[in-house]
Design a protein around this nucleic acid. Structure first.
Length: 299
DNA sequence: CGCCAGGCTTAGG
DNA sequence: CCTAAGCATGGC
């Protein structure tokens, strides 16, 4: 095993980030034990078993299946963690922006240091958001775990199974019937298989999507894909491309969070949300994150 | 059993 | 451009 520190920003709470990761405890692509996250990553075509935890100097990363790593590997791993936990995100500016906000002022104090937990792999992010469409989260986690356990690469950490999310080529070779047994709807199976084919044909990739630059262009590009609407496009822009102003305004969880926080009798309309979210620009993704977080601690 | 769920597509104005 | 209906699969 070898260990190194991850440079971390001033405003950062490992505990809050861990809470968010642990929320998807059914997700077999990671595992949490003793406040440490275990995950297999592919770095330069090699599989590394990492353990992310916190020590007296901040966030630290162990590579469990290696005695040493190259500088190149260390910088790739550091970059991965930074992307995963959004360590570059400017929380200070966001907190400043909402310090008097009627919804967020309290939440950013309560969950200070929580950062957007990313899904760095674009294919995984898109699959996950398609899975999450119009079903409750409990069921969505169940679907993802079935997908990963059926078609992902099975590795392990000691006695715990730990998987690598299936590659597009693997999914592209499947039929709709391969999914229905996993409780996927035929429609979602179609979307995911078609998407996998796009990746195989290099019709979509993270770098060129990011290169489009603006949120509007990225969303416009994504919604051209069948099965991806505005909600999914913004969700992926938020969790994979780390666009700080991405805003899944149609999100039911967001609606419920606002309703709770403002003690409303009915969920707010899209128009009302758009209006209150105007002052959250250009950090609407972060506003969404903190509102989602609040759902676990209903008032 | 009924309503809801971190929506999308299609048909019809 | 906007609205409504239909959809598919469970959780609670």
């Amino acid at each position: 095993m070898m260990t190194f520190q991850i440079p971390q920003p001033d405003i950062f709470s490992f505990k809050e980030c861990l809470w968010y990761i642990d929320r998807s405890f059914l997700d077999a692509t990671h595992f949490i034990e003793n406040e440490s996250v275990y995950k297999w990553l592919t770095v330069n075509d090699e599989e590394l078993l990492i353990r992310l935890h916190e020590n007296e100097d901040g966030a630290a990363l162990d590579v469990l299946n290696r005695d040493s790593i190259s500088n190149d590997e260390q910088s790739l791993l550091t970059g991965y963690i930074s992307d995963w936990l959004d360590l570059e995100g400017d929380l200070a500016s966001f907190y400043k922006l909402v310090e008097k906000d009627r919804l967020l002022a309290k939440l950013v104090k309560q969950y200070r240091g929580l950062r957007i937990i990313g899904i760095p792999d674009l294919f995984e992010a898109l699959c996950w958001s398609i899975i999450g469409q119009q079903v409750n989260l409990t069921f969505a986690f169940k679907l993802k775990s079935a997908l990963v356990e059926s078609f992902g690469k099975k590795l392990a950490y000691e006695e715990h199974p730990l998987y690598i999310f299936p590659k597009p080529a693997q999914i592209a070779s499947l039929e709709i019937d391969d999914f229905t047994g996993l409780q996927f709807s035929r429609r979602k199976a179609e979307y995911i298989i078609d998407l996998a084919n796009m990746f195989v044909e290099n019709a979509i990739d993270k770098a060129s999507l990011k290169a489009l630059g603006s949120l509007e262009e990225i969303v416009a590009r994504l919604v051209e894909i069948r099965g991806i609407g505005k909600w999914t496009a913004n969700y992926v822009a938020m969790r994979c491309l780390k666009m700080k102003d991405a805003f899944p305004i149609e999100d039911v969880g967001l609606h419920n969070a606002i309703k709770n926080q403002l003690d409303m009798y009915e969920k707010p309309s899209i128009a009302e949300i758009a209006e209150m979210a105007d002052s959250w620009k250009p950090f609407r993704a972060y506003a969404t994150l903190y509102l989602w977080r609040s759902l676990a601690d209903k008032k």
